[in-house]
Amino acid sequence: MEEESWITHEEYLASAELFRSAFPAFAAEVARVEAMRGKLNEFQLSRAVTMAADSVEILGWNSRRTVLAIFDVYVELYRGEGREAADRWVEATFGAGLLLASGGRQEQADPGLLARLAAVEEEIRGREAELLELYRELTRLKAEASGTQPPDGLRGRGEDDGELAAAGSKP
């Protein structure tokens, strides 16, 4: 039996905003894969949804579930009626995904632009990870210099209690 879920209007609006934020990364991945291989298969669609959901900060489980449910509707439309129909649904429902071209007619956002947008977002995530590693190293070195123990989550690799005890330090 499927679990029935009720969300407030405010939660839905917040989830819809998260979806609008995540949709460009999703559309870029769909455009990139379609340009190389044609219509996406189940795995490729799932991967694009996961990448898009991970591209925005979703604060709670209910919001994540709602955003993923919205993507599920898109995926069903994509499989059944094609990308154009799914994109029209996104535009009509959330006002996302389509851009006004000169002359006032609507057309799909440039796949190259969307792919570059996704690449830049991925680069930012990679650099954020590097900065986090540097911050952990800095915190560990400061703690070492002051003779204190860094918090567990900021210990360097290989510094478990056994290695510290073997080195003559107290954990």
Rank of each mutant, 00 (worst) to 15 (best):
A69H: 05
L131M: 13
P150K: 06
I7Q: 10
G126D: 14
A96I: 09
S15T: 03
E121R: 12
R47Q: 10
E121Q: 12
E137K: 10
A166S: 11
A31M: 02
E107C: 08
A118Q: 11
L117W: 09
G95A: 03
A119H: 04
D161E: 15
S15E: 10
G103S: 05
S15W: 02
R20Y: 00
F19T: 07
T50D: 11
S5N: 07
P24Y: 02
R64Y: 10
E128H: 08
R83Q: 07
S15L: 07
L59A: 14
G82C: 03
S21C: 06
E76S: 14
E159P: 06
A86H: 05
A52W: 00
P171V: 07
G168P: 06
G95I: 08
R65Y: 07
E121D: 13
G162E: 11
T66E: 14
E128K: 11
V49W: 02
E144C: 01
G104P: 04
S146H: 06
I7T: 00
A166N: 03
P24K: 05
T50K: 14
E91I: 11
M1A: 11
E76R: 15
T93Y: 01
D110G: 05
G158M: 06
A129K: 13
A14W: 04
E84N: 06
L138N: 12
G112C: 01
A101R: 12
R79Y: 01
M36D: 05
I58D: 02
G158V: 00
R136K: 15
R157Q: 11
R79L: 05
A52H: 07
V75C: 11
L18A: 12
Y135A: 15
R64A: 12
Q44D: 01
S146I: 02
T8V: 00
E11P: 04
A16M: 07
V33P: 04
Y135C: 08
A129Y: 09
E10T: 00
V120E: 09
N62T: 09
R79I: 01
F71S: 06
A14P: 03
E29Y: 04
R37E: 00
A16K: 07
L134C: 08
T8E: 12
I58P: 06
S21P: 00
G80T: 15
Y12N: 14
G168S: 04
E34V: 04
F23V: 03
S169D: 14
E11T: 00
L138G: 13
E123P: 01
V30N: 02
E121T: 04
L99T: 14
I70M: 13
A16N: 04
G60N: 12
F26A: 01
A25M: 12
Q108H: 08
R47D: 00
Q106R: 13
E57Y: 09
L131F: 15
L98Y: 04
D160N: 15
E76A: 14
R105F: 10
Y12E: 14
T8Q: 04
E133Q: 12
R157I: 03
Y135E: 13
